[in-house]
């Protein structure tokens, strides 16, 4: 025992045992971030999330305005309201960042994701896969005698549901783009 009555082997006196475990509930948020299309912006954004220990569920980025030299990131993350506010503020500090919006709280928005599914199978399973793809409005973008590649767009939930159905039917590979999102209206 030391002068501070710290039990032997206890780590509760660590300098970093400070944070109050928030009673707040973590939720999923979709952020849209407009940036200069500079080299390194992706590294800055990704580095911010890893460096400060934030979650990334998905992140997509591409140039959206060639003339204006602008890129749009769509980032899906989870966190308590406090953490999400902090993520927004931290993104806002990045010098090439122009705008940050939390689509989850700022009114209605649309979210879409594109996915490619490779499903291998023959006979009854193959027919069933094709039938379900039709119901989900998935397109066949490649086919061999033993496989299809389906292209599907929709909300992440719709894509998850399609994946669940394809799994017993011979799902071999999946590629997903992550979410792209915009607010509704103008």
């Amino acid at each position: 025992m030391s002068a501070l009555n710290i039990k032997k082997g206890s780590t509760s006196h660590s300098a970093y045992d400070l944070r109050d475990p928030h009673a707040e509930i973590a939720g999923r948020h979709t952020l849209t971030v407009l940036t200069d299309n500079d080299p390194g912006v992706l590294a800055r954004v990704a580095g911010l999330f890893t460096g400060r220990g934030y979650n990334i569920e998905s992140l997509t980025v591409a140039e959206v305005d060639h003339e204006g030299h602008l890129s749009r990131f769509t980032i899906v993350t989870t966190g308590t309201p406090t953490v999400i506010e902090q993520i927004k503020a931290q993104l806002g500090r990045i010098v090439p960042v122009h705008e940050v919006h939390d689509l989850t709280v700022e009114g209605a928005s649309v979210e879409r994701e594109l996915a490619l599914f490779k499903v291998a199978g023959t006979g009854e399973k193959r027919v069933e896969a094709l039938r379900l793809a039709d119901i989900f409005r998935a397109n066949v973008v490649d086919s061999t005698l033993e496989s299809f590649v389906f292209e599907i767009t929709g909300t992440p939930e719709k894509i998850d549901a399609f994946a669940d159905l394809m799994r017993p039917l011979g799902l071999a590979d999946v590629a997903r783009t992550g979410v792209a999102a915009l607010p509704r209206g103008i």
């Binding site: 030391s2 002068a3 501070l4 009555n5 509760s12 006196h13 660590s14 300098a15 970093y16 045992d17 400070l18």
Partner: peptide, 24 residues
């Protein structure tokens, strides 16, 4: 000490031998 609140401050008379007393 780290992780303690402001009102649990150690004053202590900076004794040179041994640990400060818990009464600090």
């Amino acid at each position: 000490p780290s992780g303690r609140p402001h009102n649990e401050m150690l004053l202590g008379d900076a004794s040179t031998e041994g640990a400060i007393q818990a009464g600090g």
